[in-house]
């Protein structure tokens, strides 16, 4: 088992980074730090996909032989397209989350989730 982890060291790193991102997402009370954890997880997925597409000794999928490229010369192009999609979605979601965080800060003057829940409870009690 340990042998497998060392031969697939890119995938191992990706999974550890994913776990760190997940722990960041769960443990921090600050919303900005939660978003940072989310981005950690995205990055780990890109690393995993890119490493699954790589083949030792082959080149990036840009044909240098003109019209008739041979299969044995290039790495797998499909993970590259998937990573592209992932990056776009991650950028969009980060921007959306950050905009929501700004609105929360404007309403409550804090980014701490516990504090926001406390203020919300206070408001309910007053009513």
């Amino acid at each position: 088992m340990v042998q497998g982890l060392f031969t697939n060291y890119y995938e191992t790193t990706a999974m550890i980074v994913f776990g760190i991102g997940f722990a960041t997402l769960l443990l921090n009370k600050n919303i900005i730090k939660k978003i940072i954890g989310f981005n950690f997880m995205d990055t780990a997925i890109y690393l995993f996909l890119a490493s699954k597409g790589y083949i030792t000794g082959r080149l990036a999928p840009i044909s240098f032989e003109g019209m008739n490229p041979t299969f044995e010369n290039y790495i797998n192009p499909i993970p590259a397209g998937l990573v592209l999609t992932g990056i776009v979605v991650s950028v969009s979601f980060s921007a959306f989350f950050l905009a929501l965080a700004i609105r929360l800060y404007k309403a409550y003057n804090t980014l701490d989730l516990n504090e926001i829940i406390r203020l919300k409870n206070m408001e309910a009690e007053e009513e």
């Binding site: 088992m1 340990v2 497998g4 697939n8 060291y9 890119y10 191992t12 790589y54 030792t56 000794g57």
Partner: peptide, 13 residues
């Protein structure tokens, strides 16, 4: 990590 250890090896055609 347990799943990764059973994946086919990195860079194999």
């Amino acid at each position: 990590l347990f799943t990764v250890s059973f994946l086919p090896s990195f860079g194999d055609p």
